[in-house]
């Protein structure tokens, strides 16, 4: 996939960023994410630990959800265009959850000669529960 080029002139406030629908989260994915990120909190990988903690099993890493948000932004504007990415964690994810990230452009401006947009996004599960709320700033062409 080539780095997308999003033109500042083509984007208006209210523009809907193409949503990202992820494959269902799997327990294997959480093991992979633990290894990749170095977050070995057993609540993410050991079923019995997640049960004892009251979740009925393992829960996803918050940073995995933020990783989805990162993919959502880079799919749209590319990697180097993303200047800021910020999230608040609102609810946990669980295996089999299908996460969708969607968002809009909320501000468009020029700063130090750069064409910038501010975006707001939301990651929800298949039931519409808010997993993360976030903002991003991107520099467009």
């Amino acid at each position: 996939m080539a780095q997308p080029k999003v033109l500042f002139n083509n984007i208006e406030v209210g523009y809907e960023i193409p949503p990202l629908v992820k494959n269902p989260i799997t327990e294997t994915q959480l093991v992979m994410y633990a290894g990749a990120s170095g977050d070995f909190n057993p609540i993410h990988t050991v079923h019995a630990f997640g049960e004892k903690a009251g979740f009925g099993g393992v829960i996803g890493h918050g940073m995995l959800s933020m990783g989805f948000a990162g993919q959502f932004m880079t799919n749209w504007v590319g990697v180097t265009a993303v200047k800021k990415l910020a999230v608040q964690f609102r609810a946990v994810t669980k295996p089999k959850n299908v996460i969708t990230v969607s968002g809009t452009v909320v501000k468009k401006y020029t700063e130090d000669g750069q064409n910038m947009v501010d975006c707001e996004f939301l990651a929800v599960n298949q039931d519409g529960d808010k997993i993360i709320m976030g903002t991003a700033t991107a520099e467009l062409s």
């Binding site: 080539a2 994915q29 994410y33 995995l64 990162g70 993919q71 880079t74 590319g78 990697v79 990415l85």
Partner: peptide, 28 residues
């Protein structure tokens, strides 16, 4: 682990074709 299949995170050449100096790095 994130499930992001963008080639620029796996392959130096793919990233260079896209103007990177080497493999690109995901935001997180």
């Amino acid at each position: 682990a994130i499930g992001d299949k963008n080639k620029i995170f796996y392959d130096d050449d793919a990233a260079r074709e896209d103007g990177f100096e080497g493999m690109a790095v995901p935001p997180t």
